[in-house]
């Protein structure tokens, strides 16, 4: 759909706090409502926000979903994608063919059985031999974060968290808010920008072998709390802007819009696909990273900005050496 390629040197391989001492030391490409482009440091984001604006953050926290597994002498990797129940997860099996009628061996004599297809190919559903807090404890003790091929160092789980992440459940970091420090959030609050939180537990964003999730078949658990719904209504009533920090926030808020166009408190699972033809109802701006051409996240951006303008901005980002992926630079799009 979108024709560009990301040169190897623009894959952010190291978090900003390791390279430059603080996580907010990344760049910010802003596109205002007149579709003008601005180049700043991320910690200057306050210039683009007004008193009364509401920043909505996803405070889902990342768990370590990559588990080593085996059947007999055959070893492979399991990547958990979505919790289905206290004993069951949807997961991606990375590796060769498995005997689906035999248990998968994990560490500590824990076992899992494949019980069916996942929400879309190639995900499967796994039923574990332990449940609830014991299963989560096991995942924490034995799991690793998902590290894609452009990451060459085994950064710890801590590296894959936002400072405000609190509710465990995402298998990949909701990375749009990664560059915020508490200090920067305090600076925004002093300016009169308000903060609110939703939870959307992000599933896997890539299935390997050039396979990508289709949002229609990629359900994610989410919650828009009452206090957040009220703040959004209040912000819109007073003519201020709701800025979503991340595509996960757009997905959650748009899934919470009633037939009257209002955001209501809700907890559930969403399959919403926001793309070019979708009319955004709850959000006036989006802070996000830079996305790969194949990613559905990029399609979502075309609901905020005509595709031609978006591609023009992306080409400028490539020319100016902006960095891609979860440790990379940021992109603010205002409607």
């Amino acid at each position: 759909m979108h024709a560009f390629s990301i040169p190897e040197n623009l894959n952010a391989q190291t978090p900003a706090e390791i390279v430059r001492g603080r996580r907010d030391q990344v760049r910010l490409l802003s596109i205002d409502k007149d579709q003008q482009l601005f180049h700043n440091n991320f910690n200057e984001i306050d210039q683009f926000l007004n008193p009364g604006d509401l920043l909505v953050l996803n405070n889902s926290r990342t768990i370590p979903p990559v588990l080593e597994a085996s059947q007999g002498n055959h070893t492979f990797e399991i990547r958990l994608s979505r919790k289905r129940s206290s004993t069951s997860w949807e997961a991606l099996v990375v590796g060769d063919f498995l005997a689906i009628d035999r248990p998968i061996q994990l560490e500590e004599k824990v076992e899992a059985m494949i019980t069916g297809h996942g929400s879309e190919h190639p995900l499967v559903t796994l039923e574990f031999s332990i449940s609830g807090s014991n299963l989560l404890d096991f995942i924490y003790r034995n799991g690793e974060p998902v590290r894609y091929e452009y990451i060459h160092r085994p950064f710890s789980l801590d590296t894959y968290q936002t400072v405000y992440g609190s509710v465990p459940g995402s298998v990949e970091m909701p990375s749009a808010g990664r560059a915020f420090t508490w200090g920067l959030l305090e600076k925004l609050k002093r300016k009169g920008v308000r903060l609110a939180f939703i939870q959307l537990h992000a599933g896997l964003s890539y299935y390997e072998k050039d396979r990508w999730p289709n949002p229609n078949n990629h359900p994610e658990a989410f919650c828009v709390p009452e206090a957040t719904a009220e703040l959004i209504q209040d912000t819109r009533r007073t003519g201020n802007r709701v800025i979503a920090v991340g595509t996960t926030v757009v997905r959650a808020l748009e899934s919470a819009v009633t037939s009257h166009g209002e955001v209501e408190p809700i907890e559930g699972t969403t399959r919403l696909y926001v793309d070019e033809g979708y009319t955004i109802a709850a959000v006036d701006g989006l802070l996000t990273g830079f996305h790969e051409p194949e990613a559905s996240h990029l399609h979502m951006l075309t609901a905020f900005l005509p595709k031609k303008k978006l591609m023009s901005a992306y080409h400028q980002a490539l020319e100016k050496g902006y960095l891609w992926h979860e440790f990379g630079d940021m992109n603010l799009i205002l409607k």
Partner: peptide, 14 residues
């Protein structure tokens, strides 16, 4: 810190 992460997350999840 990894034990702290695990402990607090399990409590928050529950």
């Amino acid at each position: 810190s990894s034990d702290v992460e695990r402990f607090v997350s399990i409590v928050e999840d529950r």
